[in-house]
Amino acid sequence: MTSRAGILRLGMMVALSLVAACGLPRSGPNKKEIYAGAVERGGNAHVIYVNDHVTRTTNFVPAYGFSSSFRNAGQVGADEIRAGDVLGLSIWENVDDGLLTSLGTSSTSLQEIQVDSAGYIFVPYAGRIRAAGNSPDQLREIITQRLSAQTPDPQVTVSRVAGNGATVSVMGKVMAQGVYPIERPTRTLSAMLAGAGGVSIEPEIAVVTVKRGNEQGKVWLTDLYSSRANDIAVRPGDIILVEEDQRSFTALGAIGGQTRVPLGNDMINAVEAIAMVGGLATALADPKGVFVLRDEPESVASRVLGKPVYGTQRMAYVLDLTRPNGLFLARDFLIRDSDTIYVTEAPYVQWNKTIAAITGSVDSADSVASFGE
Rank of each mutant, 00 (worst) to 15 (best):
I239L: 12
A166V: 08
V290K: 00
L99N: 05
Y348R: 08
T282H: 08
L280N: 03
T55E: 14
R228G: 05
L147Q: 04
V174P: 01
T101V: 13
L224M: 11
S226I: 15
R303G: 05
K307L: 14
V318C: 06
A118C: 03
G163V: 15
G213A: 13
S169E: 06
P62H: 11
S169T: 07
T58S: 14
F66G: 01
E80H: 04
R160E: 05
G65A: 07
L89D: 04
F291A: 00
T167N: 09
I81K: 08
K211R: 09
P29A: 09
V318R: 03
G237N: 10
V170T: 09
L293A: 07
T354K: 06
E215D: 11
V179I: 14
V368K: 07
G257L: 15
I121V: 15
A45R: 13
L224H: 02
D116M: 02
A21M: 11
G360C: 09
A301E: 00
I91T: 01
A21E: 08
V170F: 15
A38W: 14
D231M: 12
A118M: 12
A15H: 05
V300I: 15
L224Y: 01
T144W: 09
P287G: 10
A301M: 13
R314E: 11
V290W: 01
D295W: 02
G119S: 09
I239N: 11
G253T: 12
V292H: 07
S200G: 10
T157R: 10
V161D: 05
N214V: 13
G172I: 09
E272R: 04
L334H: 09
V362F: 14
G264L: 02
D153I: 05
V207A: 00
D339W: 12
P236W: 10
N44M: 09
L263C: 08
L193H: 05
G127W: 12
G178V: 11
I129M: 11
R146Q: 10
A73V: 13
G77L: 03
N325C: 10
G127D: 07
L110W: 00
V39D: 06
S227Q: 12
A346D: 05
S367I: 11
G65C: 11
L221V: 00
S102P: 01
M276K: 08
P236C: 06
R130Q: 13
L99Y: 00
T222P: 01
G6R: 12
R4T: 05
S302L: 13
L263F: 08
A369L: 13
R260T: 15
I143H: 07
G257V: 10
D295V: 15
S338P: 02
A166H: 01
S226M: 09
V158E: 06
Q138K: 12
S248G: 11
E40S: 13
D332E: 14
R130N: 09
I201R: 00
L89Q: 04
F122V: 10
G74N: 08
L110E: 04
P287N: 05
V47R: 00
M171G: 03
I121G: 00
M315D: 03
D231H: 03
A149Q: 10
M12A: 05
S17P: 04
R212C: 06
R212F: 04
R294D: 08
D153V: 06
G178E: 13
E296S: 14
A196F: 05
T209L: 07
K31M: 08
F371R: 03
P124Y: 06
A346R: 09
S302Y: 15
K353E: 10
